[in-house]
């Protein structure tokens, strides 16, 4: 298990984006906490196995149709056992 900060940049101000992130996280099986939301930037903390964090990144890169994600920068917060 690992915890990472995802900084999601782009046109991400659609009101449905945050609920979409939560739904997608549930579907994948990772924990997610919304830390910050602005018109061009969303920060979330994601917790789960590394392969599923990759899957979360892939899903968020595409995102819902009303959102355009330009980039996602990931930063390791902590790893289990560390």
């Amino acid at each position: 298990m690992a915890t990472e900060l995802f900084s999601i940049a782009g046109q991400v101000d659609a009101p449905g984006f945050a609920p979409w992130i939560e739904r997608h996280a549930r579907r994948i099986g990772v924990g997610v906490t919304l830390l910050q939301a602005a018109s061009d930037h969303v920060e979330i903390e994601v917790e789960g196995p590394p392969a599923l964090l990759d899957a979360m990144e892939m899903g968020c890169l595409l995102g819902p149709i009303e959102v355009w994600v330009e980039s996602i920068v990931r930063e390791r917060v902590c790893a289990a056992g560390a």
């Binding site: 997608h24 579907r27 392969a51 899957a55 892939m58 595409l62 149709i65």
Partner: peptide, 25 residues
């Protein structure tokens, strides 16, 4: 689908994701 929806793309699907993003844009 241009929204991942029920699919769970993984890192091996990076090209597919890039293609779908390009289509969407």
């Amino acid at each position: 689908p241009l929204d991942p929806g029920m699919e769970i793309p993984t890192r091996a699907d990076m090209t597919s994701i890039a293609y779908r993003r390009w289509l969407k844009r």
